[in-house]
Design a binder for these strands. Structure first.
Lengths: 214, 214
DNA sequence: GGATAACTTGAGGTATCCCTCAACTTATGC
DNA sequence: GCATAAGTTGAGGGATACCTCAAGTTATCC
């Protein structure tokens, strides 16, 4: 029923070793320098020629497909913990804190979630699933009366944009600052803090346009 | 007492014309594409060779020094309006809204204020002055009891990082979204909304380190 | 150990952007 | 008008990064 891979094709021993070295290097390099890091740096750090890199990963995106599922699994862990929290607000807070903590650990993930790079394939799938789960966390917190009722799931996207920049800029000099910024933001998301909003949330169309570009 | 310019040197008529065309083009190009726009695009749009561009503006920063003082004057206008507001909180809100509205109009200014590029010379001076004024606006709003007392002037820097990314990402598809995001944030900055913060504000040292890098 | 398919290599072509400078053009003052 | 200083030009050299492919190397199977 699932037809997993058309032709798994076992790799030759040396090729498998090189693939692994490339993946390790790519994880490091993307994590440190972001998703636009030069591929040649990855090849160099893996101790492999640029040709071999392209042999195993014909595009930059192929790396992402190989790297991010694991990272996004960590995110799913965060999601589950959040949904399991006895208090809905605490769950919501745990979710965003966990999410941003992951982004703060990995510049590549930060770039990916901030939509600074067009996700495709596996990564896009996982993002969709993640967003679906986030919706549940948001609705639950709203229904409990603690998260302000006009905070829509789309607003999470905006929040991620905002925090991703704070994380990026303060990463070296003050790696915890994003928590302070988030705390301000969260204080504005409590029902008791809510004042009328001046602008409607992103529409579905705007959302996908925003995702499409770049 | 002031010794304004060591040698003003009147330009030849055609040179002055070219300089103007370059400034107009640079304002457009930086405004549309950000501070890392290719200089060759500016020369092209000015209808002038790349050599002439370098003749008038030997570095990218020279353009900024020529362009931004005017833009930053608009910011000073915003500042004054904010300080003149009868209500201190309204003044604070007017200040941040005015600031981000300017950033939303001009990708270059957005880049500059988000510290995405090392400012130097005139621009840096103007930023310092602007920050000094912002401090007064913040203190005034705190003293009035409306802005939460633990919001420090340094936190404005973080807020600017956050909003600059939101502005950049939503610029085309939903150019007003930043106002919604800011509204959430502002609701968290009212005294009534305040909960204890988990992290201390940026120290002076961290602040200047952050400014130094990139 | 040899044949063969699998894999690796890295020089080199493309592209973009930076910046310079020797040769040319033109405004200006006499 | 003409001499000259002022200004303009754009080819070209330097960097960086992308990606390809013909030639060379190596694991694997018998």
């Amino acid at each position: 029923m699932q037809q997993p891979a058309p032709a798994p094709k076992p790799l030759r021993a040396d090729a498998a070793r090189n693939r692994d070295k490339l993946l390790v290097a790519a994880t490091e390099v993307f994590g440190e320098r972001g998703l636009d890091a030069p591929l040649e740096e990855i090849a160099r750090r893996a101790g492999v020629s640029i040709g071999t890199l392209y042999n195993h990963f014909p595009t930059r995106e192929a790396f992402w497909d190989a790297i991010f599922p694991e990272r996004l699994a960590a995110l799913e862990q965060v999601t589950e913990t959040a949904l399991a929290a006895p208090d809905a607000w605490d769950g919501f807070v745990a979710f965003v804190e966990g999410l941003f903590a992951l982004q703060a650990e990995d510049r590549g993930l930060n770039d990916a979630l901030a939509q600074r790079f067009r996700a495709a394939g596996e990564v896009e799938q996982a993002c969709h699933r993640g967003f679906r789960h986030a919706e549940r966390i948001i609705r639950r917190a709203r229904d409990s009366g603690q998260l302000r009722p006009d905070f829509e799931p789309q607003d999470l996207v905006t929040l991620i944009w905002a925090m991703s920049q704070v994380i990026r800029e303060s990463m070296e000099a003050a790696p915890d600052q994003w928590r302070r910024c988030l705390a301000f933001f969260l204080d504005g998301l409590r029902t008791g803090a809510a004042h009328p909003l001046p602008v409607a949330p992103l529409t579905q169309g705007q959302l996908s346009e925003v995702m499409r570009s770049r």
